[in-house]
C-alpha cells in the first residue's frame, strides 16, 4: 500500500472520530503527554472510589431511553461492586479473581481467569472507571478536550471485545481528572451512557463491600 492510500485510509478511519468529537464541542488534544501524565498520576493516587450512577441505554429501535440507577464501589487493585437498584436488582462483584453476579437473589460465580468473556468485561469496567488505560496495549486511545472535560476514546484492539464494543468514550473532569461519564458505543450505533454522581475518592471501603454475605 503506497503512502497516499495509507493516508486516505487513516483519514477515513479518523474522520468519524473527529466529527463525533467536534459535534460534542470537543477538539483533538495536541499535547497528549501532559494529559496522559495527569491520568497516570490520578489513577495511581486513587485507592478507593464510590459513587451513585445513572445508566442510560439508547437503542436505535426505541425513542425512549432505558434508564437504570445504582451504586458503584472500587478498591485497589481489582475490587468492584457494581449494584443496580432500579428498575431491576442486579449486582456484579469482582473480588479475589472471582466475578459474582447476584440477579435478584440468584447468585452465580465465575472465575475471571477461566472465563475469557468475563475477564474482558472485568478489564473493561476497571479500565474505564480508573482511567487506567495509558500504555494498555488492548486499546488504542485518542484524546479530545472540551471546556471543562477531557475525553479519551478507546478503540478495542482485541477481536473479542471489538465484536461487542466499537469504542469506549471516557469523560474526565479537567481539574480533578475524575471519571464523570463513560459511554460504551456498540457496532450499529446503539450506546450506553453511565453518568457518575456524588463521587467520593479515597474514602475507606471495607472488604466486606465486595462480598455478598456482608455487603448485600
Amino acid at each position: 500500500m503506497n503512502h497516499t492510500k495509507l493516508n486516505s485510509l487513516l483519514l477515513a478511519c479518523c474522520f468519524p472520530l473527529f466529527l463525533g468529537a467536534q459535534e460534542a464541542g470537543f477538539q483533538p488534544i495536541s499535547d497528549i503527554s501532559s494529559v496522559t501524565r495527569n491520568l497516570v498520576k490520578h489513577a495511581s493516587a486513587t485507592n478507593t472510589l464510590q459513587s451513585n450512577f445513572v445508566q442510560e441505554k439508547h437503542l436505535n429501535m426505541l425513542e425512549e431511553v432505558l434508564t437504570s440507577h445504582g451504586q458503584f464501589f472500587f478498591k485497589k487493585e481489582n475490587n468492584v461492586r457494581w449494584q443496580y437498584l432500579d428498575p431491576i436488582k442486579y449486582t456484579i462483584l469482582i473480588h479475589l479473581g472471582k466475578f459474582t453476579i447476584d440477579n435478584d437473589g440468584k447468585v452465580s460465580e465465575f472465575n475471571t481467569d477461566g472465563n475469557p468473556m468475563f475477564r474482558e468485561i472485568n478489564k473493561m469496567i476497571i479500565t474505564a472507571i480508573r482511567g487506567d488505560f495509558v500504555g494498555n496495549a488492548e486499546f488504542a486511545p485518542v484524546y479530545f478536550e472540551g471546556k471543562t472535560q477531557v475525553m479519551a476514546r478507546l478503540v478495542p484492539i482485541v477481536a473479542q471485545v471489538k465484536s461487542m464494543i466499537e469504542s469506549i468514550d471516557i469523560y474526565f473532569d479537567k481539574v480533578t481528572m475524575q471519571v464523570v461519564k463513560v459511554v460504551f458505543i456498540e457496532p450499529g450505533g446503539d450506546f450506553t451512557s453511565i453518568r457518575f454522581e456524588d463521587i467520593q475518592v479515597n474514602k475507606e471501603i471495607p472488604d466486606s463491600r465486595f462480598e455478598l454475605a456482608n455487603g448485600k
Binding site: 445508566q55 460504551f184 450506553t192
Partner: peptide, 19 residues
C-alpha cells in the same frame, strides 16, 4: 424490549450492563 412497528414487531435483548 418488544415494540410494535408499522409492519411487524421489533425485539431486542440487552444485558443489565447495557450490552
Amino acid at each position: 424490549v418488544i415494540k410494535k412497528v408499522e409492519n411487524g414487531y421489533q425485539m431486542a435483548m440487552v444485558s443489565e450492563v447495557g450490552l
